[in-house]
Simulated assay, not measured.
Amino acid sequence: MSHESLQRAHELTRTLVVAMEAGDWQFAADLADERSPLLMSLGPDQTDEGLAMIREIQSMNDTIESKAREACDAISTSYSEAQRRVAAAGQYLATP
């Protein structure tokens, strides 16, 4: 991977974290799609500066994973609550 590509992946990762913090999930998904091939093209030979950027990306990935897990949990909770309300409404309507 060229240094410019690694810098771009680093930049996209920083922007991805900001997008997730802002709750802009579509933009975050678009950034992840753009970033993925750059990360997949990483080679084993990296400069010290490149390795430092990769470590920063890994650290930001931990934040991304945590934010995604929190959002997934919130959606799951909201969905379960909606299902409970629908079931309660169904019981109410079925009561003579």
Rank of each mutant, 00 (worst) to 15 (best):
V17D: 03
R14Q: 15
A29N: 11
H3W: 06
A89Q: 12
M53V: 09
H10V: 02
D48H: 12
D73H: 09
Q7P: 00
D48W: 13
R69H: 07
R84K: 15
C72E: 13
S78M: 09
T77G: 10
Q7I: 00
D30C: 09
T95D: 12
L6H: 03
T15A: 15
D73M: 10
D48V: 11
L16H: 07
R14S: 14
P37G: 07
A87N: 12
G23M: 02
L93S: 07
E70T: 13
E56F: 03
E34F: 03
A9E: 00
M20I: 05
E34H: 06
I57A: 00
I54G: 00
A74Y: 11
Q7Y: 00
S36N: 15
A71Q: 05
E49A: 11
S36L: 12
P96C: 04
S80A: 14
M40A: 11
H3I: 09
A88M: 10
T47W: 04
M20V: 05
L12W: 03
A71D: 04
I64R: 03
A87S: 13
T95P: 08
D24K: 03
T47P: 02
H3Q: 14
A22E: 15
E49Q: 12
Q46T: 10
F27C: 13
R85E: 08
E4D: 06
L93A: 11
V86P: 06
R55V: 05
L39Q: 05
A52H: 04
C72L: 14
R85C: 03
T15W: 12
W25A: 08
